[in-house]
């Protein structure tokens, strides 16, 4: 669908836990500025796939290649561990479903946002702090809370902080696992608005795992529908949701949209 080289290329990826095959034979490409939604019910292998893609779980089989800024498409599991860890905190971002897994709950909001900058060598307190303020403003957080620890924040605020913490190094690719899971509907709506704005403004590429088709419709350009660890349907978001071909997708769409 695009002539230029992809940002991420996945070939025949499978992962098994013991005898349990969590995801199987998955291949796709993601291009710069594109948002891919991975949908399916819980247990369909979405999160395992996301962990494999984001260099946090070595797949049993298959290759994940990423377009590194300095050397082009590279197998991320051929990188050394420190190179992978570096990639994860610079050119990539990971927004976890549970903010507890993605934030340091006892470190102030400013410290949470500043951590990535300090990890890559920032040593000017004033500049780190003003960068943190900029990003907290971008995710619409009250700057008066900059020195408060996230353990005192609401779920929606924690999620916004997690997003700011990831975006501060201007990553090109963001992985999100159920970014609005566990939030009230009204809070979800605001967060989705924010996310959509940021993705457009920063020309981010993203892979978003969700069971919520409304989230997928709002954020994703393309969808991948998963069932029992396999991709059963892919296509442009509107096309998949308005005219689903696979019986499972039809079931998924009808069961949600009837509500």
């Amino acid at each position: 669908m695009n002539d230029t080289s992809p940002l991420l290329r996945v070939h025949n990826l499978s992962h098994a836990f013991g005898s349990l095959l969590a995801c199987a034979d998955i291949s796709f490409e993601l291009h710069s500025g594109e948002v891919l939604g991975v949908v399916g019910e819980s247990g369909s292998g979405k999160t395992t796939l996301l962990n494999c893609l984001s260099a946090r779980l070595m797949p049993t089989n298959g290759i994940v290649e990423y377009d590194l800024r300095d050397r082009g498409l590279t197998d991320i599991y051929a990188l050394s561990e420190p190179e992978r860890r570096f990639l994860l905190r610079t050119d990539w971002g990971v927004v976890m479903q549970n903010p507890r897994d993605g934030l340091r709950m006892n470190v102030s909001a400013g410290g949470n946002v500043g951590e990535r900058l300090m990890a890559v060598g920032a040593r000017h307190y004033g500049e780190i702090r003003s960068a943190a303020e900029d990003w907290l403003a971008k995710v619409e957080m009250d700057l008066g809370r900059i020195d408060d620890a996230p353990k005192h924040f609401s779920g929606g605020m924690q999620q916004r902080l997690q997003i700011a913490r990831n975006l501060v190094t201007k990553p090109r690719l963001i992985f999100m696992d159920e970014p609005t899971g566990g939030l009230d509907v009204s809070v979800q709506a605001r967060l989705l608005d924010l996310l959509r704005g940021l993705v457009r403004e920063l020309k981010l590429s993203a892979i978003i795992v969700t069971h919520d088709l409304a989230v997928a419709r709002l954020l994703a350009d393309r969808l991948m529908v998963m069932k029992d660890g396999r991709v059963v349907e892919t296509g442009l978001t509107d096309q998949v949701l308005d005219d689903p071909h696979h019986p499972y997708t039809q079931l998924l769409v009808s069961s949600v949209l009837q509500v």
Partner: peptide
Amino acid sequence: RKMHAYKEYGLMQVSLYEDIAR
């Protein structure tokens, strides 16, 4: 030991940041 091996000392700096902020 990994943090030393990979020279990942950002977290140490965060703790100093926290001191100044507080």
